[in-house]
């Protein structure tokens, strides 16, 4: 009885080991199963989903106009103090003072890509870009100015 159990133990053990070896053997001989992506080489065909959150950018149209009113909703929504908005006062043609965006400072090094600023923006002036290669040699390069030089607010955006 003992011998029978002993032998069946040994056989069961060997069978279970061979099962595992069959599986790894299968993968060894089937190269089509390989899932490696050759990262820097496949940049062309690599397509990130549209919603992927890489960094915050401000949308500018071809006339170098953006939709940011400088309302600081994003600054308030941000949990990390990533965004700092500096406003200025523009003169409207009627001669009235109007609050407008001067500089949109974005600290990429503090950003956690939580998307709360995008949700908060009432005019959809900012959005998340798909760029994810953020490494730079100097940390100060990560502090970005999002509104392009000379840009101004689009007509009709309040």
């Amino acid at each position: 009885m003992f011998l029978k159990k002993y032998i069946s133990d040994v056989f069961g053990a060997v069978r279970s080991l061979l099962k595992g070896m069959r599986l790894t053997g299968y993968y060894f001989t089937h190269r089509k199963e390989i899932i490696t992506q050759q990262y820097p080489d496949n940049k062309e065909e690599m397509k990130l989903p549209e919603r992927f959150r890489g960094e915050v950018v401000m949308l500018h149209d071809e006339k170098n106009e953006h939709a940011c009113t400088g309302c600081t909703a994003c600054e308030l929504a941000c949990p990390n103090g990533t965004i700092k908005i500096i406003t200025k006062f523009d003169m409207t043609p009627e001669g009235k003072k109007k609050k407008a965006l001067d500089t949109f400072i974005y600290h990429l090094e503090l950003c956690t890509m939580c998307n709360l600023c995008i949700e908060a923006c009432p005019t959809d002036a900012i959005k998340m870009a798909q760029n994810f290669e953020h490494s730079v040699y100097d940390r100060s390069e990560l502090t970005k100015k999002l509104n392009k030089p000379g840009s101004k607010i689009r007509e009709g955006v309040e």
């Binding site: 790894t24 993968y27 060894f28 190269r31 199963e33 390989i34 899932i35 490696t36 050759q38």
Partner: peptide
């Protein structure tokens, strides 16, 4: 190489 192919990588 053997380990890579068994682990479905290159």
């Amino acid at each position: 190489k053997v380990s890579a192919y068994m682990q479905i990588r290159l």
